[in-house]
Amino acid sequence: MTDPVAPVAAARTPGAVRRPVVRAALPADAESIVRLRSAYVLSKPMDEEWILRCTEELTPRLARVGDTRAFVIDSEDGSIDACALGLIHPVLPLPAYPKGLAARVHVVATRPDVRRRGYARAVVSALLDHLRTEQVTLFELHASEEAAPLYRELGFAGSPALMRMTATATATQMTVPGVQPGNAADTPSPTLEQYAETVPKATLWGCLYFTDEDDRPLQVHSVYSPAYPWQLVGGTTDLGEHPWQTAVRECGEEIGITPAGPPRLLATVFSPPGGGWPCPTIGCVFDGGRLTAAQIRAITLNPEEHDEVRVLPLAGWKELMPPGDFARLSAVEEARRTGVTAYIDSWGWGNG
């Protein structure tokens, strides 16, 4: 996934209107975005309880693995002058959006004292440009009459054949699998969305297990994780990806190799929440095959993630890794050797 765009310094001239400097929003910007929406988008501002609830909802969704992207312009007083926020969601694919990814432009807000300076255009343009890098090619929004000319200039078009219709949960209650409908005196059946809130959520990841031609495991050394220094090649699944697609993408980004497949699963790894991460993780370790000495020498590392690639006999890794990490590596090696896929649920944060 593309990392947040760093702000670019703007030249200042005394008395001149400040040029908008647009940057990608971070989880720490969640409250400012919520307050901007409350004050200048909603017909009725939220109270502090709802400000807090919305902030808690938005904060994790603004992370790299979340489904929300936003771009903002900072105010000189440390707050935010303008923002544009989009929610990414899956749709059935068509030729115009073959990846089946759409984004709803959910919030566009500018403080009244800095309007008519091009701030809304700047943040919306940055948001759309960034979403296209994530292969989102269908964009949706609800436009006011005042904002409609801007969105038309950015490529949006209305349809006289479509009508905006809304309904609250009380008008759309549905029977949920496993929940028996009651009579009028019973508690109303939950909607699908409400039921979905009650089931477990998990983060996915995909990795590749490489060895050299002597079947010695290959791992890369992390520059950001001293507690778990040696790692397989791979990472967290981006929105819309399958674990194999993640493994292939991360392999290209981390060591400059693109495996051809087909995927061969060596292990499935389940980990409960921990280490500050609020949800379980489920990972797939695929067989990357054997690399020649020339291929290993040609590996190019991403210096922002790893600073060394190493090949050792399995026993040689034991002193370099937490016990849980080594046990997981051993199970993966055994799965490669025997052809029997491993299931691992003993790994957890804190025991490596």
Rank of each mutant, 00 (worst) to 15 (best):
Q173R: 15
R336K: 15
G274P: 12
T341W: 01
W347L: 15
V5P: 01
T292K: 08
V223M: 03
T168W: 00
E241I: 00
E134S: 11
E146N: 02
E319S: 15
W230F: 02
T236R: 15
C251Q: 05
R19F: 03
S79A: 14
P177M: 05
Q173A: 13
A10Q: 11
Y343V: 15
A126K: 06
I73W: 07
L150C: 09
A184V: 15
P217V: 08
P273C: 12
G283N: 08
P90Q: 00
L162W: 05
P313L: 09
D74W: 05
D307N: 05
L92K: 10
V65I: 03
D212G: 06
P322G: 03
Q231D: 09
G352E: 03
W349D: 13
M321T: 05
P7G: 10
P190C: 01
V72C: 06
A11E: 12
G182H: 09
P14M: 02
I33K: 15
R19M: 08
L291S: 08
H221C: 01
W277K: 12
P45Q: 13
A16R: 08
G316Y: 03
S346L: 04
T281P: 04
A293H: 12
A109F: 07
K201I: 07
V223F: 00
P190I: 05
P313G: 10
N351T: 14
A122Y: 01
R264M: 02
D325V: 01
V179D: 02
P273Y: 14
A161D: 14
V332H: 12
A148E: 12
A16P: 10
A157G: 14
F270L: 09
Y151Q: 06
E319L: 13
T175K: 10
Y195D: 05
W349N: 10
W230M: 01
A6T: 13
R297M: 00
R116K: 14
P272G: 09
R121V: 01
E308I: 04
P160L: 08
D81C: 13
D186W: 08
A63H: 03
T2I: 07
E134A: 08
L128E: 07
T268W: 02
A84R: 11
G289M: 13
C207F: 12
V114F: 10
G15W: 05
T172A: 12
V41A: 03
G350F: 02
V108M: 14
S330V: 03
Y151S: 11
S189N: 10
A126F: 06
A331Q: 14
S43Q: 10
A147I: 04
A103T: 08
L26R: 15
V123C: 04
W244L: 00
L265F: 05
V233L: 05
G235H: 02
Q219K: 04
D47Y: 06
G352F: 06
R18P: 02
R18F: 01
A16F: 05
A10W: 03
F71Y: 15
I299R: 12
P322A: 00
P160D: 06
